[in-house]
Design a binder for these strands. Structure first.
Length: 762
DNA sequence: ATCAAGGCTTTTTTT
DNA sequence: AAGCCTTGAT
């Protein structure tokens, strides 16, 4: 049990408490994962059977990593018997096992967001509703939050408050859409993400013997990131733990950032109500970050009203202050940060993987990608359009899905005429209308025009018959053929492979390669299966719907700069972190300015971002950026002002003195903002904030001349293009003085100071 | 039935 | 800037 020595007193207490309800409130970087890992290992060493442990994590990746760490302690053969994963993946497996109880096929499809939206869109159209008023995304959000709160369509319709909200929002028919949506999903043998939680609750509610079975199986229940669970998840956990009450939840209310998805901080408060004799542990020592970072983050989060008081502290060094960089445009922001990474990597001998760029929205990644590409620096973007959401991948998987579950209407619609086989929209529409009329799945109509007559041409009927036969031939081989073999056959005989191969545009080539990559992945999946079992395509499909980019990480992705949203950075840490786009209406998001609760969530998000950094945190904002293809002007985020000034340091890049109306600032700054941050003042007013001094008489946009600092041999300077350097020699006198400067990036350069755009670094 | 062109909305975050 | 949808021509 030597590993227990690696724990501090608080952590140790939390690990050693085995039985009964407990809650660990764990500040950022306080070793939460370590506690959870060791706790599970300790349980097993105390004789708890791995089969009796359920550990729920927020991502698949977190589950996998934790499992590996536990395996290191207790051995892989034991570790693999723990039920560990996300709520969605663990309970989708349980649902598959009992699906017939709920009237679903055991190979039910999991609809992703796109599928759900598409179903909803069709319903809105069929109901003759205006899709400007009933936006599919909004409607889906409404349905999703109903499900997350376990409100059935019937209960929705009865709920005066909800119906009132819909009426006020001019969407009185929403309950009808909800009802129809559930019906269509059921008819398609499909569950959406929310159904995985909702239906688990239905299963446990309606089948006490099944609930009883899992209560006995999962004698120990552990939940990570408890602050981000929603009501449906809360109730699942509560029911499972009702008998033994061996429940351990771990979380940090300050890092609750998923309320848009139904996450409810209330769950933490409910915990006290549900288990009055629970034990609470607080982990407050941060092992991750410097004092500056921890204290700066504390100074921000202190402004939130809703929080459990904590005193997060660290014994680490003070470290450097947080730099705040102003840039003119989003493109410049990309270049400046790419250059910084380049310089710091050189100067400090760092790896690419030491850096992360975090942003509020996925769309911001572009300027960084471009800048990094130009400097030939490897990066990896997480999130955004994931591999599995690409059209060609979804197309091929749709064939797989259809083979496994022909009632899957979204898959059917996707591929019935792709590649083109002459089954046009009119035909499909007619078939769909007929299916609704007969009250059966579209597939049922397609397979039997005698029983379900449809008014379509004989030609179309024949084409459809061929298509149906082809799918049926796939279905027949589903349980007997290894996944890779069948997948390969489907890719060829569906015509997808040829269709993409014939497309010689760069995009087409990339798509073809993506398909090959998917097939290679399936190959790997197939051969990694235990000797005497065959991995079928159905097995592959079970996982694929719930996979994300983070689960796909390749070995070659390891030493790369990380680009991701702050949301996806939760739980991660990096030595050097850049938080970019700190502007009003972007961060905090424009959508989050309607209530204090929303703003506080944005602030928690900022807190999460800050606390990802170990050594150094850098923040940037721009005064002008492109949005929807249009240039918009931006003001610095209020969050910048909320940081205690003690811990930050403003850097304003100086311009050259070429003059001439270049400045965007001159018309950017409205009067209310002609104050401290204004470029010629910030960084000069407060001596404590000064770190970069202008060297040559740089003319600012307002026409003022900045102070001139004499240059000396040995000074460190920053050049706009060459980056950081050291002055090795000086010759001549001003105004024609020249300096020889060694730049690690480009070697020695002799520059005429009059022209060189240099800044001196203290 | 298919394809090209033009117009329109979109960006908050994710299992 | 890009994807989606409608429209209109073939």
């Amino acid at each position: 049990m030597g590993y227990l020595e690696a724990l501090n007193e608080r952590q140790l207490e939390a690990v050693l408490k085995v039985d009964g309800p407990m809650m660990v409130i764990a500040g950022a970087g306080s070793g939460k994962t370590r506690v959870l890992t060791y706790k599970i290992a300790y349980l097993m060493e105390q004789g708890v059977d791995a089969f009796n442990i359920l550990a729920l994590t927020f991502t698949n990746k977190a589950a996998r990593e934790m499992k590996e760490r536990i395996a290191d302690i207790v051995g892989p053969s034991e570790a693999k018997n723990i039920s560990m994963g996300t709520f969605h993946s663990v309970f989708s497996k349980i649902l598959r096992y009992h699906s017939e109880k709920l009237g679903f096929p055991n190979n039910f499809t999991i609809y992703d967001t796109q599928d759900s939206r598409s179903v909803i869109k069709a319903i809105i159209k069929d109901f003759g509703l205006d899709d400007k008023v009933y936006k599919p995304a909004t409607v889906h959000g409404r349905i999703s939050s109903a499900k997350n709160n376990l409100i059935s369509p019937a209960a929705y319709e009865q709920n005066a408050e909800i119906i009132g909200e819909d009426r006020i929002a001019q969407r009185p028919d929403l309950f009808r859409i909800y009802k129809e949506y559930v019906k269509r999903c059921f008819q398609s043998g499909a569950m959406d993400f929310d159904d995985l939680l909702y239906n688990t609750n239905v299963l446990f509610r309606d089948y006490p013997e099944i609930l009883h079975f899992y209560q006995q199986k999962f004698k120990y229940v552990l939940v990570d990131e408890y602050q981000d669970t929603n009501y449906a998840q809360y109730l699942i956990v509560k029911k499972l733990a009702a008998v033994y009450e061996n429940i351990c939840v771990v979380g940090d209310d300050a890092q609750s950032i998923y309320s848009f998805r139904g996450a409810n901080i209330q769950n933490i408060l409910n915990f006290k109500k549900d288990y009055p004799d629970f034990t609470q542990f607080k982990l407050e020592q941060n092992y991750r970050s410097t004092k500056n970072i921890v204290d700066a983050a504390n100074s921000v989060i202190a402004r939130n009203q809703d929080q459990i008081k904590k005193d997060v502290w660290t014994s680490n060094d003070a470290g450097e202050k947080i730099d705040i960089i102003r840039c003119l445009t989003d493109n410049e922001e990309g270049r400046v940060i790419a250059n910084k990474i380049f310089d710091w990597k050189q100067a400090k001998g760092l790896d690419y993987q030491d850096f992360a760029i975090l942003y509020r929205t996925n769309a911001q990644s572009r300027s960084f990608e471009e800048a990094l590409r130009k400097l030939n620096m490897p990066y990896k973007i997480y999130g955004g359009l994931s591999f599995y959401q690409r059209k060609e991948i979804k197309d091929l998987i749709a064939y797989f899905r259809l083979a496994a579950n022909p009632k899957d209407e979204e898959a059917l619609k996707r591929v019935i005429n792709y590649p083109k086989r002459g089954i046009g929209n009119t035909t499909i529409d007619n078939v769909v209308v007929a299916a609704r009329k007969y009250g059966v799945a579209v597939w049922d109509v397609l397979t039997d025009f005698k029983v379900y007559p449809v008014d379509i041409s004989v030609r179309a009927q024949n084409t459809i018959r061929d298509f149906v036969t082809k799918i049926q031939s796939f279905t027949l081989r589903l349980d007997t053929t290894p996944a890779f073999d069948l997948a390969n056959d489907i890719a060829s005989s569906s015509g997808i492979l040829k269709d993409l191969y014939d497309d010689k545009t760069p995009e087409g080539v990339a798509r073809y390669e993506n398909i090959q990559e998917l097939l290679a992945g399936i190959k790997e999946f197939t051969v990694s299966q235990p000797e005497n079992e065959i991995a079928t395509l159905s097995d592959f499909l079970v996982d694929v719907a719930l996979l994300t980019d983070a689960d796909q990480e390749q070995e070659e992705d390891k030493n790369k700069i990380t680009l991701m949203t702050i949301h996806s950075s939760k739980g991660l840490e990096f030595p050097y972190v850049f938080i970019v786009g700190l502007e009003e209406n972007l961060f905090p998001s424009q959508m989050a300015l309607n209530s204090r609760a929303e703003l506080e969530e944005e602030r928690r998000l900022f807190y999460v971002a800050l606390t990802r950094a170990e050594k150094k945190c850098t923040i940037s904002y721009v005064t002008s950026r492109f949005r929807f293809g249009q240039q918009i002007f931006a003001e610095p985020s209020r969050f910048i002002d909320e940081l205690d000034q003690k811990f930050i340091h403003h850097i304003n890049r100086m311009e050259g003195n070429t003059g001439g109306g270049r400045s965007l600032n001159s018309y950017q700054r409205p009067s209310e903002y002609a104050k401290p941050q204004s470029r010629s003042e910030t960084g000069f007013k407060m001596p404590t904030q000064r770190n970069l001094k202008p060297l040559k008489s740089a003319t600012t946009s307002s026409g003022k001349h900045a102070t001139t600092v004499p240059l000396k041999v040995g000074y460190n300077v920053v050049h706009e293009r060459f980056g950081k350097g050291k002055v090795t020699a000086l010759e001549g006198k001003a105004p024609d003085q020249k300096a020889t400067i060694f730049f690690p990036r480009v070697g020695n350069k002799t520059l005429i100071l009059k022209f060189a755009k240099l800044e001196v670094v203290d």
